[in-house]
Amino acid sequence: MMYTAAALAILITMGLALARALLGPTVYDRILSVNMFGTKTVLLIAVFAFLSGQTDILDIALVYALINFIGVVAVLKLIEQGNFFTSGEKDEREVESE
């Protein structure tokens, strides 16, 4: 019962984060919301593990916490540079020399 209540609260938060991600207005707002959505997903998985009584599911939450972080940083890098393959510093030097 208490797990259901917590899961519902987390779902509402995720809904609010999703609404912000859809509304924008800047791309950074969207990434922020997606990051928050991801953190809440980790919590939801953790609560679900207890709700279903299979605590092995916690491993998934653990992995999701890591992937969420890497995903957010990767998307940020993509937006800042336009691709995944160059380092930011090199780009600046190229810009200066032009």
């Binding site: 917590a6 987390i10 938060t13 609404a19």
Partner: peptide, 17 residues
């Protein structure tokens, strides 16, 4: 703890709006 945490999440969700 769970209810307080859930409420905090919702408040944060309101905050970003």
């Amino acid at each position: 703890f769970l209810v307080a945490g859930g409420l905090l999440g919702i408040i944060g969700g309101i905050g970003i709006h």
